[in-house]
């Protein structure tokens, strides 16, 4: 939603608790445990949220979106049926998943996994290169934000070769791609009225970029 107008002020909440309702903690923990179990990848969770109708996406809370996305992935991946979720009881045994998050694993299991993958080709760009982001509008998951499509920027960092969310989310494997921080001048993104002191960077996978 980068660059959209009309959402109003940011409202910090003093002394905010980690969870406002106990169910939020359950959703967060369920999501971590199912991710650890290998039920799906984080990009499947993100893609399921992005497929929510806009009026639902914009009115649901953060953890409500997580819960809705989890229901989608559970059903789509055949881990339970919609009927089971509706009734609140399993009607058939579960499928085998690669592993299970047990209480003893709480330290190891919460460790963040690595997204590095073996490179398939040398990097196409180097730090300092001027690049142009592609003007692409896939209906599936992508990490190229709309406000940064078709823009000129400079490669500032190279983060190595990572699994490619656009492929992972639609079950096309890791499809490893080089990942770069690309920085844009404010006026390149927002026109002549932009804050002249503004620079914005995104992390862009190589397929999002072309030489400029």
């Amino acid at each position: 939603m980068g660059g959209m107008d009309g959402f109003g002020k940011v409202e910090p909440e003093p002394n905010e608790p980690p969870f406002h309702e106990p169910w939020e903690g359950r959703v967060m923990a369920l999501s971590r445990a199912m991710g650890y179990a290998g039920a799906w990848h984080i990009d499947h969770a993100r893609f399921a949220q992005e497929r929510l109708p806009p009026q639902v996406y914009l009115t649901a809370s953060y953890y409500q979106r997580w819960a809705l996305a989890m229901e989608t992935n559970v059903v789509e991946r055949g881990l339970a049926t919609a009927e089971e979720l509706k009734s609140g009881h399993a009607l058939a045994p579960g499928k085998a998943l690669p592993r299970k998050f047990t209480p003893a694993l709480v330290r190891e299991g919460l460790k963040r996994g690595s997204f590095f993958r073996q490179q398939q080709a040398p990097p196409r760009f180097k730090v300092g290169d001027r690049v142009h982001t592609r003007n692409i509008h896939p209906t599936t998951h992508t990490r190229l934000p709309r406000y940064a499509r078709g823009k000129f920027g400079i490669v500032e960092l190279c983060h190595g070769c990572h699994m490619f969310p656009d492929a992972v989310a639609i079950n096309r494997g890791d499809d490893p791609q080089w990942l770069y921080t690309v920085v844009f001048e404010g006026h390149e993104l927002w026109g002549p009225d932009a804050d002249p002191t503004l620079k914005v960077s995104i992390d862009a996978f190589e397929p999002y970029l072309e030489p400029a």
């Binding site: 369920l30 559970v74 881990l79 339970a80 399993a90 045994p93 579960g94």
Partner: peptide, 11 residues
């Protein structure tokens, strides 16, 4: 959701 995923043995 939690009950079903627990009964299925996933969590």
């Amino acid at each position: 959701l939690e009950t079903v995923l627990t009964q299925k043995g996933y969590v």
